[in-house]
Simulated assay, not measured.
Amino acid sequence: MTEKTAITPPTHTTPPAKFSHGVRKGNILQVAGQVGFLPAVPGQPPTPAGDSLREQTLQTLANVRAVLEEGGASWEDVVMMRIYLTDTAHFAEFNELYDAYFADLKSVPAARTTVYVGLPAGLLVEIDALAVLG
């Protein structure tokens, strides 16, 4: 039986509860929901990348990518992404940012689900991903 391995990039803080930023088991890598926090600074609380959807989306995607890379994956390996937005009015802007970010993706784009949720104050977007390697 293949063991599970916790994945935590050096840019990330310890999760606030008993979960991992990513878990790899065999050729499956699940990235936990990431938000737009800037890279961790030891001894400092997490800081959002900014107040705008653009700033937070780009940082959130960078945080997902960091977990993917730490786990040996890339965007090319992602088969499913879930997007959590706090405001339905952000859907069109998010799609523009998302399409621009993945404009150079060489493989079939991941399947995607978008839902609307409540997030801690000031956070506008959260993203998780499922990658299959090899």
Results as ranks from 00 to 15, higher is better:
K106S: 15
P10L: 13
E70A: 15
A73K: 01
M80F: 15
E96H: 10
R65M: 10
M1G: 06
R54D: 15
F19Y: 12
L123C: 12
G50V: 07
A121H: 14
R54L: 15
T2F: 07
L133M: 12
L58E: 07
L124V: 06
S20A: 14
T11S: 05
E70V: 02
N27H: 04
T13A: 12
P120C: 00
P9L: 01
V35N: 01
I28R: 11
E76R: 13
L58G: 10
A92Y: 07
L130C: 14
P45K: 06
R82M: 13
S52N: 09
F91I: 15
V67Y: 09
P46A: 02
L133T: 06
V78W: 03
D104H: 09
I7K: 07
A103T: 04
V35D: 09
F91H: 15
P42M: 06
P15E: 10
P120S: 11
G43M: 09
F19I: 03
T60W: 00
V115L: 14
R24T: 02
V117N: 00
G26E: 09
S107C: 11
K25T: 15
E69C: 09
A66M: 06
T113A: 09
S52G: 12
G33H: 06
F37H: 07
G50M: 06
T60D: 04
A73E: 06
A73I: 11
W75N: 08
E96Q: 14
M81E: 12
M1L: 10
Q34F: 08
T11R: 10
E76N: 09
P9A: 14
E69M: 00
F19S: 04
N95S: 14
V41I: 14
L53E: 10
P15N: 00
I7L: 13
E69N: 13
G43Y: 01
G36K: 02
S74C: 01
G26A: 05
T60L: 07
S107A: 09
V115N: 15
T113M: 01
D77W: 08
L61K: 07
S52Y: 13
L105T: 03
D51M: 11
K106R: 15
Y84T: 08
Q59D: 03
H21R: 04
S20H: 15
R82C: 15
Y98R: 00
F37W: 08
P45Y: 01
T14W: 03
L53K: 06
G134H: 02
V31Y: 04
D51W: 08
Q59A: 01
G22E: 06
K25H: 14
A62K: 01
R112T: 12
A40E: 03
H12D: 12
L85V: 13
I127L: 11
A40Q: 10
Q44I: 04
Y116L: 08
S107H: 07
N95W: 13
K25W: 09
G71M: 11
G118T: 14
T14A: 04
P10K: 03
T114D: 00
V125T: 07
E3I: 00
P120D: 05
K25V: 12
L130D: 01
L130Q: 13
F19M: 03
G43W: 10
P39A: 00
G43R: 05
D128W: 09
G118N: 14
L123E: 03
